[in-house]
Nucleic acid binder design. Sequence first.
DNA 1: CCCTTTTCACCTAGGTGGTAAGAT
DNA 2: ATCTTACCACCTAGGTGAAAAGGG
Lengths: 256, 256
Amino acid sequence: GWAGEGLGAGGKNRRVCHAAARLEMGSLWEEFNRLGTEMIVTKAGRWVPQWPGGCRAEGTPSPSPSPCRRMFPTFQVKLSGLDPLADYVLLMDFIPLDDKRYRWGGGDGGRGSDLGVLSPSPPGRYAFHSSSWLAAGRAEPAAPGRVHFHPDSPAKGAQWMRQIVSFDKLKLTNNLLDDNGHIILNSMHRYQPRFHVVFVDPRRDSERFAHQNFKSFSFPETQFMAVTAYQNHRITQLKIASNPFAKGFRDGDPEP
Amino acid sequence: GWAGEGLGAGGKNRRVCHAAARLEMGSLWEEFNRLGTEMIVTKAGRWVPQWPGGCRAEGTPSPSPSPCRRMFPTFQVKLSGLDPLADYVLLMDFIPLDDKRYRWGGGDGGRGSDLGVLSPSPPGRYAFHSSSWLAAGRAEPAAPGRVHFHPDSPAKGAQWMRQIVSFDKLKLTNNLLDDNGHIILNSMHRYQPRFHVVFVDPRRDSERFAHQNFKSFSFPETQFMAVTAYQNHRITQLKIASNPFAKGFRDGDPEP
DNA sequence: CCCTTTTCACCTAGGTGGTAAGAT
DNA sequence: ATCTTACCACCTAGGTGAAAAGGG
């Protein structure tokens, strides 16, 4: 099985073994990570295509559940090392960082926290308002392990490398029964986003080489706690300060 | 050259020879066509990606030329007869309906009009306000013959047939030097939209069979006059009445 | 005179966290 | 007590024709 397609380092196909991904907005991710990133998860409303097609039922005031939420910061990467002429599929998944369930509490400055690294850097400085994430038992049964394909997949390596690849269509939900293909996560659990580059192998028996045809990337600064409402007020403030869609909640003069 | 891929009616590949396309919103198209459809064309502003990437130059108040315009009604088709497992590319182009240039004028009820069919159905009823399209010389040199690929291309036949295919990303411009890939048309000229289904032939020498691998569709009710501003007031009123984005200009109670 | 361009108010569509009420 | 949901005002982003200004 070693004929035809040369193998590179690590037993990977040469179409992926040189692939590299640089996380975009790295300093913003790190700023969030220092505080302990939180991502909102909600139940999904069924999408009602209002236009085009125009087939909205007349007396349908919509059940109006909250829409699913994107991630912020958005997961974006700059790719290099792909074969410009080969086809690739890009996708993401989310793996539990541990087998724990968390709760937000304390208020004693973080003593007893299992996640001291997520507390404010100068310990005690924000003591009055400080709380922290505490382990609170074993994780709930893992949600269905879904995957989000970048909607431009498949595409040539040249296309993927031309500009930043943005996963801004990815949405998070806590609805275990979600049927819209969104990423299902358990609230109050920690996750590590993973990014995968998959070479679309044109060979007939490509299944035999599946394990050689992908390369995965994990950026530790993108890990986060799934929540239904923000717990850490400093995370809230950083989201408001940095997410354009939250501009309505800014009051002071911003730093450009 | 007749081996391997069976040919169907008209010397077309069997993957496309049974393809059929039904125009959506047909009654709306016909309503416009009875009045003489007009489509706005504008010069394009260069697209400034404000987010994500955030690379907007600081003191750039944007040159603010008008954005390019979509078509309304949107060109939408329901497809059938494709091979569910084969790959297809869907695209549109626009061919001049004649070699004439037009002007809007008259005001005598349409006498002398070359396009009497586009005048109000009950002749004379709207005499006071009526004008019509008059031929006014030969067409200008044809604009660069561009093509618009449906952004989901390529995709499997099953995917294309699953739901209505909408060309709502297609934009029209009168800028002969447009470098955004928009469709370039001459104002005051008439056009016929065309729709093409192209089978992506996996054979090595597929170029040799290119003429067999596509099927084209023209719907006469979608022909239109390219204009920089609406001339026929009844077209304006029908656009306002039927385009959701023009709801701000409706005054009377609508008919649902 | 006729056609084109610019700017504008007013929409659709949807992404924010706040807030209060609901659930366990 | 803690977590979740529903609804809201306020944004971004961009698709409308009106009206005024510009150009040949």
